[in-house]
C-alpha cells in the first residue's frame, strides 16, 4: 500500500505531464494551421505544373528522344524508396505508419528479387529503417535545422534524386509520405515519381495539346520542367507531411491529456480513500485506548 506522500507525488507528476501534453497540443494546433495554409498555397502551382506537363508529355511521349525522367529506363530492377517522415516523435502513429508502408514495399520488392535503395528524409524514418535496411540506405537528409519547409529544401532533395537517376543508380523512384485528410485522419501514401506519372484527367481537361507552340521545343522544355516537377512533387509531399504530422500530434496529445485527466481522477480517489482510512484507523486507536483505561 502506497503511503499518502507517494500518492501525492504521483498525482503531482501526472499533473505536470498533463500540462506538457496540453501545451504540446496547443502548439501543434497553431502549427497545423500554418502548415495547412502553406499546403493550400502550394496547390495552384502544383496543379498548373501538372496540367502543362501532362499536355507536353502527351505530345511527346511516343518520341524516341523523350527524356528518361518521363519514360523511365525501361527496366525496373533497382527501386529507390524516398521516405519522408518527421524529425520529432510524439505524434501518434504518424511516423510508424509511413515506415511500415515503406518497409512492406521494400520487403515485397526484395522478395521479387529487385534491388532496393532507400533515401530517408527525417530522423524518425531513418532510425527505424536503419535497423532492418542498414545497407540499403543510400542517403539521409535531416530537416531539423529548418523551421518551416521551403522550396529550396525540396529542390535540394530533388536534385540529389535526379543526380542519382542520371548516374543510373536506380530505375524507379517512389515517394512515401502521409497525405493530409483531416486532423484525425492522415493516409500514408506511396507515389511513383520516376518515371513521371500524370493523372489522366490533367491531360484530357486541356485537350488542345496539339495547338500549342513551344519555345524552345517540347523536349527541351520537358528536360527543364521534369526536374522542376520532381522538386514540386517533393515539396508538396513535404508540406502534406508537415500538416499531417501536426494533425497527428494534435490528436495524440489530446488523447494524452485526456488520459492524464482520467489518471488524476483515479489517483485522487485512491488518495482520499487512503487518507480517510488512516483517519478512521487513528480514531479507532484513540477510542480503544480510552476504553482500555
Amino acid at each position: 500500500m502506497a503511503s499518502l506522500k507517494d500518492l501525492r507525488n504521483r498525482i503531482a507528476s501526472v499533473k505536470a505531464t498533463q500540462k506538457i501534453t496540453k501545451a504540446m497540443q496547443m502548439v501543434a494546433a497553431a502549427k497545423l494551421r500554418r502548415a495547412q495554409t502553406a499546403a493550400e498555397a502550394a496547390r495552384p502551382y502544383a496543379k498548373r505544373m501538372e496540367a502543362v506537363l501532362g499536355n507536353i508529355a502527351s505530345a511527346v511521349s511516343g518520341g524516341p528522344d523523350a527524356p528518361l525522367l518521363l519514360t523511365g529506363t525501361g527496366k525496373d530492377n533497382v527501386h529507390l524508396l524516398l521516405v519522408l517522415t518527421a524529425e520529432r516523435g510524439l505524434c501518434g502513429a504518424f511516423n510508424s505508419s509511413i515506415v511500415r508502408l515503406a518497409r512492406d514495399r521494400a520487403n515485397a520488392l526484395i522478395g521479387q528479387g529487385k534491388t532496393v535503395k532507400i533515401f530517408c528524409v527525417g530522423r524518425k524514418g531513418y532510425e527505424p529503417l536503419r535497423r532492418q535496411f542498414e545497407k540499403q540506405i543510400v542517403e539521409f537528409v535531416e530537416l531539423r535545422a529548418n523551421k518551416g519547409v521551403t522550396f529550396a529544401d525540396a529542390q535540394a532533395i530533388a536534385e540529389k534524386v535526379t543526380g542519382m537517376f542520371q548516374a543510373g543508380e536506380f530505375d524507379v523512384a517512389t515517394l512515401f509520405f502521409s497525405r493530409f485528410q483531416s486532423v484525425i485522419s492522415q493516409t500514408p501514401t506511396a507515389q511513383q515519381i520516376i518515371p513521371a506519372t500524370f493523372p489522366a484527367t490533367a491531360v484530357v481537361a486541356e485537350g488542345a495539346a496539339a495547338t500549342y507552340e513551344y519555345e524552345p521545343d517540347e523536349n527541351e522544355i520537358l528536360a527543364d520542367l521534369l526536374p522542376r516537377n520532381l522538386a514540386v512533387q517533393v515539396f508538396t509531399a513535404l508540406l502534406e507531411n508537415g500538416a499531417s504530422e501536426q494533425g497527428a500530434r494534435m490528436s495524440a496529445m489530446d488523447n494524452a491529456t485526456r488520459n492524464a485527466g482520467d489518471m488524476i481522477k483515479k489517483q485522487t480517489l485512491i488518495y482520499n480513500r487512503t487518507r480517510q482510512a488512516q483517519i478512521t484507523k487513528e480514531l479507532i486507536e484513540i477510542i480503544s485506548g480510552a476504553e482500555a483505561l
Binding site: 500549342y212 507552340e213 519555345e215 524552345p216 522544355i221
Partner: peptide, 19 residues
C-alpha cells in the same frame, strides 16, 4: 522574360509555352 527572348502577351495570344 522568355528563354529565347522577352515577349509581350496581349489578350487573345496564341497557345504558347515558353521556359
Amino acid at each position: 522574360p522568355g528563354a529565347e527572348g522577352e515577349f509581350g502577351v496581349l489578350a487573345g495570344h496564341a497557345p504558347f509555352v515558353s521556359v
